[in-house]
Computed example of a mutant assay.
Amino acid sequence: MSPQIAFLGAGNMATAMINGLLASGFSPSQLRASDPSEAALSRLQSLGLSQLNTSPQHIFIDADLVVVAVKPQVAPEALAAIRDQIGPNTAILSIAAGIPIASLQAAVDPTVPVIRCMPNTPAMIGKGASGLFATAQASDAHRALAEQVTNAVGMTMWVPSEALLDAVTAVSGSGPAYFFALIESIIAAGVDLGLDQQTAVALTLQTAIGAAELAGRSELPISTLRENVTSPGGTTEQALLALQSHQFDEIITHAVQACAERARTLGEEFG
């Protein structure tokens, strides 16, 4: 029997996942969703889904996987509302940032398999990076189904402990913002050097895309790729020396660590 996936919440991330699942071969009849927004459900209806409701009543019965895609502060309450629909073979995949597994299980049942996911915003265009952790109750089939969901919007990495999702948050969950900030700074510097805005934006974005693509395809270490661009006494060397003189590595490390610490704190608050 074809697996059934039900989405609790039909916002942007849920919609991206549903789009990705449909593109990967899932039938609209395998996907369901509940969301109080008629507009959100209308978008899914246009994709061919028919099992849609502004009320969660009956939507989650017999689902193999329930994807919790509501705002973190309401996730436990929203789950508790469908507790009676969670069957013995149903697993939960939560993309509600910061909500610990203990809180999710407390809302339904401690024996329910839970998989926590930390996605990121490039999932909206199918280029996301998701970190997943599963409880011991999750079967191989549950894990495989959850991975189908996250692979539909990018790539997936599993971590061996729930605590490591804070590191995932710091590296990839919040990571796009770091790259956007760097892109903004390079564009501004290019404009200061005399480039017009359009040219600075185009050159910077293509350089970022090309560097990432090269790093992903190459068998060489990232450090070697950097060294290959850095001729002794050349222009790139001067730029990197300027970064080092302002403790570039230390700044990045501090930023990522601050993010991870905030993720831990939020987890404790939500827990």
Rank of each mutant, 00 (worst) to 15 (best):
A208H: 01
Q4R: 15
I251A: 15
L220M: 07
P160H: 00
A80H: 08
Q4I: 05
N19A: 12
D140I: 00
R264Y: 02
T265S: 13
P36K: 06
V256Q: 07
T15F: 03
Q45D: 02
E261R: 10
V74K: 03
A177F: 05
T235P: 01
V256A: 04
P122T: 13
Y178E: 12
S34D: 03
V70A: 15
D249L: 10
L182P: 00
V67W: 02
I115V: 01
S2E: 10
Q197G: 04
G216Q: 13
A134R: 06
Q244N: 15
A211I: 02
P72Y: 01
P176L: 03
F7H: 09
D196G: 06
H58F: 12
V201W: 00
A97H: 12
C259S: 14
G190N: 11
L164Q: 14
F179K: 15
S42L: 07
R143C: 04
D166I: 02
A102G: 10
N120Q: 14
S42R: 10
L193V: 00
L165W: 04
V114C: 05
K71A: 10
L266Y: 03
Q105D: 10
S185R: 13
I252R: 09
L241I: 06
Q57L: 14
I61Y: 03
A81H: 12
A144H: 04
T236N: 07
N120G: 14
T90H: 07
Q73H: 14
G48A: 00
Q148V: 00
H254P: 04
N19E: 14
D84M: 07
M155V: 12
C259A: 15
G173T: 09
L44C: 00
Q30V: 10
A80E: 12
E237R: 03
D166R: 10
G234E: 13
A40C: 11
E213L: 11
Q137F: 01
L266G: 08
G9C: 02
I82F: 09
I82C: 11
Q257S: 08
P100T: 06
Q198Y: 00
P36W: 04
L22P: 14
A181P: 01
I187M: 12
I186K: 11
H142A: 11
Q247S: 14
V171M: 11
E147L: 02
P176T: 03
S139V: 05
A258Y: 02
G216A: 09
D192I: 00
L93W: 02
G216I: 01
H58Y: 07
N53V: 01
D249W: 04
R83C: 13
L44V: 00
Q197V: 09
I187A: 08
L225C: 08
Q257R: 02
V74P: 02
G87N: 15
G11C: 14
N19C: 11
A40T: 09
D249Y: 06
